[in-house]
Structure formats: C-alpha cells, structure tokens
C-alpha cells in the first residue's frame, strides 16, 4: 500500500529543463513532508502525483501506488485524495451533501449512505449538521468536514497542500492532531507540502527538501 515516486520529473510549458526530479518512498501510515521556498514546484509535485497537471506540463518518471503504476491514469482513477489550503467545500451543496459527494459509491442504499455521512459528521464533531450551509461553518469545522469528505471516498493515498496554513495558531495544532490521527487509523501513505517546520516535526516522517536546482 506504499506510495513510490520514481525519478518523477515535471517540465513547465516552454521550459527546456525539468523543474525537479524526485524519488521517494512513503510507507502506509507515514506522512512525508515536502519543503522548500515558494515557486520551487512543491504544488506542481502534488499535481503530478495526483494527476492534476494543467495541459502543457510534461511529466516523466513513474508514480506507484500499492504496487500499481498510476502514472498514466486520469486523476479520478488514481484513488489519491487531495486537500487544499482552503476546505473547498462545494458552496451549492449542504454540509451533508458535500460528504455524500465524497462517500464511495461502494456504499449502497439511501439509508446506509445517510448513516455513513452521519457517522463521519459525528467523528468530526459536527453531529446533526447535515443540512447546514458550508458557508456558516467556522474555519475549523470546515477543515474537519473537508477531511471527512476526502476520507469517505476511501483513498489509497492522500496529498495535503499546506493544509493548516490558513488556520489560526491555536486551531492549527488541534487540526494537525485530528488529521494525523485519522490518517494513522487509515494506514495510508501521505505526501504533505508545508512551509511550517512544526508540521514536518509533527508528521514525523521523511522530509524532502526541494531546492531551486532540483532535489
């Protein structure tokens, strides 16, 4: 179930040299941190792993997930979850429907799906908030709901793009603990981009430093 990046290189449109070359192995339950100055290509690395590169970006090397080569697969077929700085809950759906959107289609039947959503909300401290407009949630509530939405899709790996940087200092530690606890429970490999050394320390996994000249 590990995530393996094998000589992964991304070249920007109209550039002749790759932005970086990365080889990395993340074991199940491990959180690897990617650090480095702005503009070095940290988010681009996540895009390459998740399959979200914009047209024109060229990608070489391999991404293996649980022994399967996913490099050529579209994003939706990779089973790699993605969390942004903002929660990015869909504004037109209620909180419950946001989670139902994430919930794997393998869970069948209206009653079973509703129960799965209710359980997830409860675990996020949002019990009974199915009908709420996501805009009315606090920052921490939104972040927890977004994590639940991602985990309900039953991902085989997770990408975190500076997931705590928008939160207040107090909330940050709490959300970090909440996130890492859920990840540990799932036992899936995680790749996290961060600016905050405390994130990397808390993650306690391998640290990859991207520098302007490549890794």
């Amino acid at each position: 179930m590990s995530l393996v990046l094998e000589k992964l290189m991304v070249t920007l449109p109209r550039a002749d040299r790759p932005l970086f070359e990365v080889s990395l192995r993340v074991e199940p339950g491990q959180v690897a941190s990617v650090m480095g100055p702005s503009g070095v290509g940290k988010s681009t690395l996540l895009d390459a792993v998740g399959g979200h590169l914009a047209p024109g970006f060229r990608c070489a090397g391999r991404v293996w997930l649980a022994g399967r080569d996913v490099t050529a697969l579209p994003a939706e077929a990779r089973r790699i979850g993605l969390m942004f700085q903002e929660a990015l809950l869909f504004p037109h759906l209620s909180v419950g429907d946001n989670l139902a959107f994430g919930l794997s289609p393998a869970v069948r039947g209206r009653a079973a799906r509703r129960a799965a959503v209710a359980t997830a909300l409860e675990r996020a401290g949002l019990a009974g908030m199915e009908g709420r407009d996501p805009a009315t949630l606090s920052g921490g509530q939104r972040a927890r709901a977004a994590l639940m939405r991602t985990l309900l899709a039953d991902p085989a790996a997770l990408l975190l793009d500076e997931p705590f940087s928008r939160l207040d200092t107090g909330l940050r530690a709490e959300m970090r603990a909440f996130t890492f606890a859920h990840i540990a429970e799932r036992g899936i490999p995680v790749l996290m981009v961060t600016h905050d050394p405390e994130d990397a320390t808390a993650a306690a996994g391998p640290v990859l430093r991207l520098s302007a000249k490549g890794a």
């Binding site: 579209p74 994003a75 939706e76 979850g81 993605l82 794997s104």
Partner: peptide, 27 residues
Amino acid sequence: DAARQMAAGRALGYAPAAVWVKVLLPQ
C-alpha cells in the same frame, strides 16, 4: 473557482463530466 473544484472533484474519484454536472453547473 472552477479549476480547483475540478481537481477536488476528480481527487474524490469523479470523471470530469460528472464534476461538471454535479459541481460546476449548479454554480
């Protein structure tokens, strides 16, 4: 915010056309 919502939807396993109909079109 179409591009990032598309990425979020696809990361949850949705085909781009499904993200269009369920996420972008209603907005």
